[in-house]
């Protein structure tokens, strides 16, 4: 059984997951180094699928490498680049390699990346992809053809509580849950009130659905501005940006903001942990985990 599932379903412990850095250089040594850094703190890490519509070493290849080096992968599969046949092939490949955690996402558009001229696929959408993973779990492909041994996927998805239509986001989360998702990693967001409404709404309807809000570690107000201006679906209020921008020590102010976000999120119903994305690449990740009361290797 995947350690992630085990932790979520058989314990009340908090669960921390992390975005595994994309691999464009450094070869296997880069994977190994990142695993060594992250595995003391995180039960599992997302092996991303051409994140932000940029090509990188593939989702499955990095997931297999991570697993070999000793960190449990969450294999992300995005609907933008692959049709239903290729998506199922990713799933069957994961099954072959004993990878159980999979996360299904609609994905951002090709226009978000560095090859906006590419063809977008979206043959399936996020909720459909979740349902297809559930179908594979029952021992067949979408077509009904047998797949054996049947996978034992721990299926997750992503939802954005921070954008329109706000009250529909809860229903959409439930739709993914009914399609088979048992965990939702949430989009990065800077409106605690929206997160709170979403968590309460989801928890009332699906108390077993584990929510992992995302927190991103940045060093200054620059990336906050970037997200606000350039990443559709992320709104960073002016006062949040100003709080970091006007601080004497921007790096410290940005850290305190992230720590506050974690502490707030962990008080909400249905929230079982945090998903961390690190854009700082210094020792702040370790600091954050320590400040949240974690000790290394005590996942």
């Amino acid at each position: 059984m995947s350690a992630l599932r085990e932790r979520l379903q058989n314990s009340k412990d908090l669960v921390f997951t992390v975005e595994f850095p994309v691999i464009d250089g450094g070869g296997m040594a880069a994977v190994e180094k990142n695993v060594a850094r992250l595995s003391p703190w995180f039960v599992a890490a997302n092996s991303t699928d051409n994140t932000a519509a940029h090509a990188h070493a593939s989702n499955l290849s990095v997931a297999i490498a991570m697993k070999n080096f000793g960190l449990e992968p969450i294999l992300q599969i995005v609907c933008r680049d692959k049709n239903r046949i290729a998506i199922q092939a990713d799933m069957a490949g994961a099954n072959l390699h004993g990878i159980e955690n999979i996360a299904l996402l609609t994905g951002d558009d090709v226009t978000a990346g560095d090859e906006p001229e590419a063809r977008r696929v979206f043959d399936l959408d996020g909720p459909q992809a979740v349902n297809v993973a559930s179908i594979l779990n029952s021992g067949t492909y979408l077509s009904g053809r047998k797949l054996q041994p049947a996978p034992n996927f721990f299926i997750s998805a992503v939802e954005n509580p921070f954008t329109h239509p706000f009250d529909y986001r809860v229903q959409r989360a439930i739709k993914k849950h009914e399609a088979g998702a048992q965990m939702l990693q949430l989009q990065i967001g800077y409106h605690p009130d929206r997160l709170e409404n979403f968590a309460r709404g989801v928890h009332a309807l699906a108390p077993d659905l584990a929510l992992l809000p995302s927190v991103v570690l940045v060093k200054s107000s620059k990336p906050l501005n970037f997200m606000n201006d350039k990443v559709p679906g992320i709104d960073v209020p002016a006062d949040v940006i100003a709080r970091v921008a006007s601080a004497e020590d921007q790096s410290e102010a940005a850290y305190q903001l992230a720590l506050e976000q974690c502490k707030h999120a962990l008080t909400l119903p249905g929230v079982r942990g945090i998903h961390v994305t690190d854009f700082r690449h210094d020792d702040t990740l370790e600091r954050l985990m320590t400040d949240l009361g974690r000790t290394p290797h005590n996942l």
């Binding site: 609907c79 951002d108 239509p165 739709k175 679906g233």
Partner: peptide, 18 residues
């Protein structure tokens, strides 16, 4: 994105399309 099951996560703050 020809989505059949509701909006993606990229809806902008003004309710417009990603």
């Amino acid at each position: 994105k020809t989505l059949r099951n509701g909006p993606c996560g990229g809806v902008r703050e003004d309710g417009h399309c990603e």
